[in-house]
Design a binder for these strands. Structure first.
Lengths: 336, 336
DNA sequence: GCTTGGCACTCGGTACAGGGGAGTGCCAGC
DNA sequence: GCTGGCACTCCCCTGTACCGAGTGCCAAGC
């Protein structure tokens, strides 16, 4: 009985604090929520919640604010999933439809996410590892210089220039091209790489050099690490504690490796992961949370997208937005 | 005589203010610089400079700070070009060498610039408009689906998928491919586009559809507008006046169109353009300056790179860094 | 005529004290 | 177990006083 109310009090405090950004006191709480008890009772509950580590006081005679542990409980057990409004859903659909290629999908998603959540949005490009090779193309820039292009099923294009030791004839080129395509086209990256590695050892004139470059291009994990970031202007809303709170975030946003750490393993589609404050892998992120989820065609979580924002954020709304965008993007990738 | 000293006083004030971020007074000025006159004399000069609009006072009994007009004079007439140190030059060279493709060159340049200047760096991708078509490739994804690829001399690759109304044979494909390459390869974009437009009207089965898509891909000005941004964490050093100063910058950094406006027309290689405060095209950029220059292969100013920072910045050093990076990048583009 | 030292004045910043108010903890009573 | 009451805490705002950096001006000197 009291246990139930205590939880209700925590929920109310989180909601009010997120809305007002100010420590919330017992009196204000009973006024704004119909708890049907007196402030004194709420005070007792608050004291208990503080003992258990869910709340804290900035100073002795102030209201309470949630701790990371408090937010965690809120997210895990109290956050009723707030469904998006119909207009919001329409906005998502119309915003994402009409994207022409992968880059466009990603950049639109980033914009959309940051606008919906009013936070900094981060979208990882679908990883190579599970995508397949659509086509390999060779272009002779000069008799002894080849441009090697690999086109992948996600729509990504990898290209390299190869300097050959000897000129190559058109016939040789055509033969090489068809052999490479035979080996790689249609395969998952990993398998294409092994097939190409086998080719490397074959006698053919230029096969070795070209195959090696292709392998390198495909296993280039730099491309695995591509991410798009948007909505950094929302950081301005952090307001106070600029140097301490915003700087680490800005720095992380530039380090794509760090960002990917932050997004973490792609959680399966439909499940939204929330990391609150110090739960994440990065230091100095004390008052910053990450809300992320996986996405990809056929609900294959090829990549992750999400947002970065202050621990003091509207979790239900943000989680709903992240999930909705991930679903839509996945659907669009299905089609292409 | 006095005129000369007055200028020296302005220079000293700019230097000190940039270094200390605090209004500079007459006494401190004569102490830090060997002006060989008394504070009282300097005060007279300062009053004159203020009358002429080069200086201003935050409040009655404070030191002086330069106005935009003051910075302008400093940049135009007083900024002795500060040559980079040998280690700095080496750092630039070693940082930029080893870039594998265009994306890599641009992203390295952005990093380098932001680190050298400790400001926000912006690098525009070389524009399509003056680049040439290196090769056009067609790949049949399905009998009635073609992947159209255009490879440009800057190393950029544009690709589109075309749905055909009827299946296409291998022979047709080969014929179409050679016709397209005949029309476009080696030409400047603009000319390639007109040549392809002529093809659009020809009878050939699929020619029309493919040529149209190619034209669209090549004249897609979205790609002209690509820019890379780096070093946003340096914004944290703005310190005070966060909401008013940093927010507009963060917003501009996300709007690539705005950013390009900000960089402005590519000034010829070797010339560094400086826009101080309200001189720029954007509102709310009152206390923000832009230092930019053109770059490109063979000193063709194909694109612009530069930095965005507070009007209170080290102009000589920043200008030198921007110019040096532009030169190195241009040289690298020469080679490829 | 420019430069200089002197001097009164201005004004932001800080330190300090006092009062108001929001909020708490505790206790006795229901 | 809930409630009203009450004393207490402590932030925050305001007003006051003071200090110091800096200025403007003036009269004297080179």
């Amino acid at each position: 009985m009291q246990e139930e109310r205590r939880i209700a009090v925590l929920r109310a405090i989180v909601q009010d604090y997120v809305a007002t950004e100010e420590p919330v006191g017992s009196k204000a709480l009973v006024e704004r929520h119909s708890l049907n008890v007196s402030p004194a009772t709420v005070r007792n509950d608050m004291a208990a919640l503080e003992d258990e580590g869910y709340l804290t006081q900035p100073h002795t005679s102030a209201g309470r604010i949630p701790t990371d542990k408090g937010y965690r409980l809120f997210v895990d057990r109290l956050g009723s999933v707030k469904p998006l409004s119909a207009p919001e859903k329409r906005a998502i659909a119309s915003f994402l439809d009409g994207a022409v290629d992968l880059d466009d999908v990603v950049s639109r998603s980033v914009r959309l996410l940051s606008q919906l959540t009013r936070q900094v949005a981060v979208v990882q490009y679908p990883t190579l590892s599970r995508s397949t090779v659509r086509h390999v193309e060779l272009v002779a820039l000069a008799p002894d210089r080849l441009l090697v292009i690999a086109i992948l099923s996600t729509g990504r294009v990898e290209q390299r220039v190869v300097e050959l030791t000897a000129p190559v004839s058109d016939d040789d080129l055509a033969r090489l091209r068809s052999r490479l395509n035979l080996a790689a086209t249609g395969e998952v990256i990993a398998e294409a790489v092994t097939a190409l590695k086998a080719l490397e050892d074959e006698p053919g004139e230029h096969t070795t050099a070209v195959a090696r470059v292709l392998v390198e291009a495909m296993s280039d994990h730099r491309s695995d690490e591509r991410v798009a970031v948007g909505g950094a202007a929302n950081l301005a809303r952090y307001g106070d504690s600029f140097e301490s709170a915003v700087r680490p975030v800005l720095e992380a946003l530039e380090e794509h490796v760090v960002l990917l750490q932050l997004l973490g393993e792609a959680s399966p589609s439909g499940t939204v992961t929330v990391r609150i404050g110090a739960e994440g892998p990065i230091e100095n992120f004390a008052s910053t949370s990450v809300v992320a989820t996986g996405y990809g065609p056929h609900d294959d979580a090829l990549a992750t997208l999400g947002i970065v924002g202050p621990t003091r954020m509207d979790y239900p709304g943000t989680m709903a937005a992240v999930r909705a965008v991930a679903r839509y993007v996945s659907r669009i990738l299905d089609e292409s």
